[in-house]
Design a protein around this nucleic acid. Sequence first.
RNA 1: GCCGACUUAGCUCAAUUGGUAGAGCAACUGACUUGUAAUCAGUAGGUUACGGGUUCAAUUCCUGUAGUCGGCACCA
Length: 638
Amino acid sequence: MEKIKISFPDGLVKEYDKFTTLSDIAQSISPSLRKKSVAGYVNDVLYDINRKLVNDSFIKLITVDDEEAFEILNHSTAHLLAHAVKRLYPEALFWVGPVVEEGFYYDIDLGGVSITENDLLIIEREMQKIIKENIRIERVELSKKAALEFFENDPYKLDLIENLDENEIITIYKQKDFTDLCRGPHLFSTGQIKAFKLLKVAGAYFKGDAKNKMLQRIYGISFFKKEELDNHLYVLEEAKKRDHRKLGKELDLFMISEYGPGFPFWLPNGMILRKQLEDFWYKVHTKEGYQFIQTPIMLSKELWEISGHWYNYRENMYTSEIDDYDFAIKPMSCPGGLLVYKHSLHSYKDLPLRVGELGLVHRHEASGALAGLFRVRNFTQDDAHIFLRDDQMVDEIANLIQLFEYFYSVFDLKFHIELSTRPVDKYIGTIEIWDKAEKTLADACKKIDKAYIINEGDGAFYGPKLDFKLRDSLGRIWQCGTIQLDMNLPERFDLTYIDSDGEKKRPIMLHRAIFGSLERFIGIITEHYAGAFPLWLAPRQVDIIPVNNEYHLEYAKEIKEILMENNIRIDLDDREEKIGYKIRESQIKKVPYSLVLGDKEKENHEVTYRHYGKQESHTISLNEFIKLLNEEIKNKGQ
RNA sequence: GCCGACUUAGCUCAAUUGGUAGAGCAACUGACUUGUAAUCAGUAGGUUACGGGUUCAAUUCCUGUAGUCGGCACCA
């Protein structure tokens, strides 16, 4: 038998028979390794575990512990799903079934039939049957011509094949009565799929284009171990419990009326949150040398024509008429901010000029896009416009990034930075200016050693930007902060400053926001903290619970007075209820401190507190307690 | 906007094959006088999202509208 040389990651080289497989090689090392292996890299190309090796190769096995294994498993589970759907709905046609971060999905055309959540159980059962049948999954290579013939009755697969290279070797994967076009690799057999769950069914446009017809998409996830699946489902349940829409209702933070879809109402508790965030924002920005303005919600159409919004983004703007003139409600605060800049003359000595505005903006969002506070039709942007000279840019942006970092650290939120570059066609200005602007943003990151990833072509039409992406408790990424370099508006509005040589010069403009939207940010931190806000944010900071109203209410009122004088947000529960009842309610409302006051406390002018989520109680003097609260508020729970 | 599901008391949910709605919590009243996650009893609370239709009879079936939810598209 002809031999081939196989080399391993640890440098070892061994000889094997030609046509050996990764499975054989794994077996030769140890039977347990064979069991754990699902595929492998052969000279950096992914191979199925049973694909025959014909040349000397460098191999790296992929075992169930590797990230790639999760992808292969989920990919094979997507095929299993399609297989089951094909058995239950013989007319079904399949588009693509890729692996995504949260498992896999498959886009299916079922003609007139529509699948509901209940059908998912039936499909799952069919999938289980196919697993039991333990069907071998076979890889077959075809020429493009042969592939076109094979799928001649499947318009979706033909579409895919036609877009493949003429000389490319096309592979299909066959599992008994089901065959799918696929690059692979796949598991060895359907029996290797152990723990999966179909999660949701939804519509999805063919090729992601709203002009195309809608296919049905089934989402699922697959794991090698049942415990992993159970854990995943548990996490999903937990995430549901933290949903800010649910917590917002339970904690009376906000409401959204059917009379105003996408227009949130702030309830007293939510207002306290907002106020704290706003105060914090003003405090930090004042220290950073910002000034503040407020510009009108509604301005003449002519202004929006100058800014370009009227032509570019009119569909998202609400409009109205005043005395026969068209007006628009602002979707952004910048045009108003520019009018303020033009209101007075500026010297080069004034730059950078930092002007902040918590501005309420309105944007028409599609009805299907609305979601709690995460996607609304009016929201408060923590906007600021910075007017500066070319030579000030890198420093200013670097400082900004550090400011953003501090801000997010206060909320213990992780983030990463993306640099969005020039869009392919919809952009203004010259490529030279764009390149320079992009380099400026990159240099600022480098200056303070901040990593960033490039988001090719995702810049605004008027300039590149740095986007700050936060990760929320559901693992979703939300863009909050943004630093945008604007090469458009200063020109359009003819902004100038008087330089040291007495000449008028054009300033450069930065738009930036840290919260992004105050509303959405509150939604994010509500989920992040699971509603148990740190003391400085908590709508109600301390609950006072007298043991017996008859004997302790006076003392409780006295304590309440003193705490209120210390600016503590407090509630005295003087209802005729048992302590347990009141403690329970205090905990359900996630109030940071519950104070129980009885004989013992009254006698020594003390308080007994219990921290949210903790069982034990502590008795200390009132003064110590106030000190403790003030410290905690000052440190913002850091 | 598109596909699908859903909408019952303030909240969370029930209501067999179509027979004009129930519970727990909350609220209110009363009793109990309480030391760390629900004291007991009573009272009140509904045009079953809204409109139209089928039927002797609709929370239930059909249909239109709105809203919500899950995705898709969108997100300057």
